[in-house]
Design a protein around this nucleic acid. Structure first.
Length: 466
RNA sequence: GCUCCCUUCGUCUAGCGGUCCAGGACGCGGCCCUCUCAAGGCUGAAACAUGGGUUCGAUUCCCAUAGGGAGCGCCA
């Protein structure tokens, strides 16, 4: 039997990184076992579902690289099917019409809680034979009242529930739209899902879904309930913790494989390995490596992981990914150095794409962002002569490459009796406007000969004026 | 309230009865390297929630307690 997993988000907002983690595990499991991954949109909450959310989910999945083999299926396009299955359950006596009003149900639950009982539907319509005027009925599932049901969870092991604790849940609304439990069960059965991999907030829902499946005569899939991921403070991950929308990570300059790498290590490990390529994740991932306890998401570690991936990523690809970030920063890269070169100079000293952009403004355009304190400290009269000497040497260079630049700087420093750094740092300030940049030879190569010479001249003029 | 789940350094984790005075990683401190920043190397501080069992022997198995979390909707 080939493995089939699914990711079934409801389109009520953006794609949350917790959702991405769930999707990732289901996707990896399918890929690892050579199976299929299905995407299903659970849009039966008509109040909250929006097309914008569907689009955001699709865009998030695409950016993350979690591709699906089937779908997206939309539950609202399968209403006839749920209707038919509900009729089947009604006919076989596994379900019944319920005419209770919301007010009645609220009152019932309030009374139960007041008595210290678990709020549950008391089955008052179970044996009702006649309709009630003016009340459109819902369909309720008739849950077995006795015995126990066991969930054999791939992550948690055997979990037993008493049927007496379960009540008769609504499976169809009066308007013919199924509720969550029913839609899930019918779809998973119809779509041949073999492994239901989802958040552990669904563990308590599993027994009722298994009962519906049994009533339908369908086999139960294997279940794997993943531990939740929490914010850095241990509370449920929310906007309060900063970015929770996957696309915000794209905007912040993270590589998708780095985000996935970070997420995959939350609740899963393969020995001591920390950095995984997508291929390695697929090769190594399996459910038996998944642990059962909740994990906190650490943005600091994500930065480190991103840096690791940045170091090994293809320069051309990173350069392309950089484009929108430069645009967002208002930097026109036309006329600047080739972006691949910028990537190679910066990949070891930046954690995100945005870090690269923020640190490299001086490479583009003619306006130089000036760190005034650095100018005062480094561009002093004492460096005027050696800087002028260096200017001449650089101006005379026939080829503008790292090695030649390095030789020129070293020669100028030696001629002036200075250490490399004594000249290098003033040079850096003059050319980049600040004290931090890649090695000075690489920096000048990227800045280009014309701009370098102009900036040194400007710096010399500044010293003379002072 | 009831039901279910979880519990190793600050954080992510390794550990599947002796190899553990508990290993790796992020972060943090120190040293080295060094033209700045990084990167890298070395190094330091830092954990088996508590109490009972089981066993010759528990971080590892069982049970309590405590602390977290989830579910109990005509939300998913």
């Amino acid at each position: 039997m080939t493995v089939r997993t699914r990711f079934a988000p409801s389109p009520t907002g953006f794609l949350h990184i917790g959702g991405v983690r769930t999707a990732l595990f289901a996707w990896l499991f399918a890929r690892h076992h050579g199976g299929q991954f299905v995407l299903r949109i659970e849009d039966t909450d008509r109040e909250r579902s929006t097309q914008a959310a569907v689009d955001a989910i699709l865009e998030g999945m695409a950016w993350a690289g979690l591709d699906w083999d089937e779908g997206p299926y939309y539950q609202m396009q399968r209403l006839d099917r749920y209707q038919a299955v509900a009729q089947q359950l009604l006919a076989s006596g596994h379900a019944y019409h319920c005419y209770c009003t919301r007010d009645e149900l609220d009152a019932m639950r309030a009374a139960q809680q007041a008595r210290g009982e678990k709020p549950r539907y008391d089955g008052r319509c179970r044996d009702r034979t006649s309709p009630r005027d003016g009340v459109p009925p819902v369909v309720r599932f008739r849950t077995p009242g006795e015995g126990t049901i066991v969930v054999e969870d791939l992550v948690r092991g055997r979990v037993e529930f008493a049927n007496a604790d379960l009540d008769d849940l609504v499976i169809m609304r009066p308007d013919g739209v199924p509720t969550f439990h029913f839609g899930v069960v019918v779809d998973d059965a119809d779509m041949g899902i073999t492994h239901v991999i989802r958040g552990d907030d669904h563990l308590n829902n599993t027994p009722r879904q298994m009962h519906i499946l049994a009533a339908l005569g369908e086999p139960t899939p294997a279940y794997a309930h993943l531990p939740m991921i929490l914010g850095p403070d241990g509370a449920k991950l929310s906007k309060r913790h900063g970015a929770v929308n996957v696309l915000e990570y794209r905007e912040a300059g993270f590589l998708p494989e780095a985000l996935l790498n970070c997420l995959v290590r939350l609740g899963w490990a393969a020995g001591d390995q920390e950095i995984f390529s997508i291929d390695e994740m697929v090769a190594l991932f399996d459910i038996d490596g998944v642990n059962a306890s909740a994990a906190r998401f650490d943005p600091e570690k994500l930065r480190w992981i991103n840096q690791q991936h940045l170091r090994g990523a293809d320069a051309g690809r990173v350069a392309a990914a950089l484009l929108p970030h430069y645009a967002a920063a208002g930097v026109d890269v036309a006329g600047g150095p080739p972006l691949e070169g910028v990537v190679d100079a910066y990949r070891e000293r930046a954690a995100t794409l945005r870090d690269i952009v923020d640190a490299s403004h001086y490479l583009f355009g003619d306006a130089l962002p000036r760190d005034e304190a650095a100018f005062r400290k480094h561009l002093v009269p004492a460096v005027r002569a050696p800087l002028l000497d260096l200017l001449l040497r650089l101006r005379a260079l026939p080829a503008w490459d790292r090695a030649a630049i390095h030789a020129a700087v070293a020669a100028a420093a030696e001629a002036a009796g200075l250490g490399f750094g004594k000249l290098g740092q003033p040079l850096r300030v003059a050319v980049t406007g600040g004290t931090v940049s890649p090695p000075i030879d690489a920096t000048l190569e990227l800045v280009g000969q014309a701009r370098t010479l102009a900036r040194i001249e400007a710096a010399l003029a500044g010293i003379a004026a002072a």
